[in-house]
Simulated assay, not measured.
Amino acid sequence: MSDMPIDEMSFEAAMRELEQVVGQLERGDVELEKSIALYERGAQLKKRCEDKLKEAEEKVAAITLDGDGSPKGLTPVEGM
């Protein structure tokens, strides 16, 4: 697992670590206390990935297109 705080991770870094966490939990060879800690970390990583995806969706939705499909400007997204 990474020492980087989850709230500083990129989507890709959080997803990679989440995959590692899931892999460890699926193997079932982790002690109970570590399993609980892994599950909690996994839940935080999942939330980070969801938040980053939502942020990206909002940015894409803010792009407006003109008649020929070319971006004609950006509409500010609240909180960005």
Rank of each mutant, 00 (worst) to 15 (best):
M1C: 08
D3K: 15
D3A: 09
M4V: 11
P5R: 04
M9A: 00
M9G: 00
S10M: 00
S10A: 01
F11N: 09
F11Q: 10
A13I: 03
A14T: 01
R16V: 13
R16P: 10
R16S: 12
E17R: 01
E17P: 01
E17I: 01
E19A: 13
E19K: 13
Q20M: 14
V21S: 00
V22A: 07
V22M: 08
V22R: 12
Q24Y: 07
Q24W: 08
L25R: 05
L25M: 03
L25F: 03
E26A: 13
E26L: 13
L32E: 14
L32I: 09
L32G: 09
E33A: 15
S35V: 07
S35P: 12
S35L: 05
I36H: 14
A37V: 08
E40N: 09
R41F: 00
G42H: 00
A43Q: 15
A43V: 10
Q44F: 09
Q44L: 09
Q44A: 12
K46G: 01
K46S: 03
K47Q: 13
K47M: 15
R48Q: 04
R48C: 02
E50T: 12
E50I: 15
E50H: 13
D51N: 11
L53M: 14
K54D: 12
K54Q: 15
E55M: 07
A56C: 10
E58K: 14
K59D: 08
K59F: 08
K59C: 12
V60S: 12
A62W: 05
L65Q: 02
D68E: 12
D68T: 10
D68Y: 09
G69H: 02
G69R: 03
S70E: 15
S70L: 15
P71K: 08
K72P: 04
G73S: 03
T75S: 04
P76L: 04
P76T: 04
P76M: 05
P76W: 02
V77M: 07
V77N: 06
V77D: 04
E78H: 06
E78V: 07
G79S: 04
M80P: 14
M80S: 15
M80T: 14
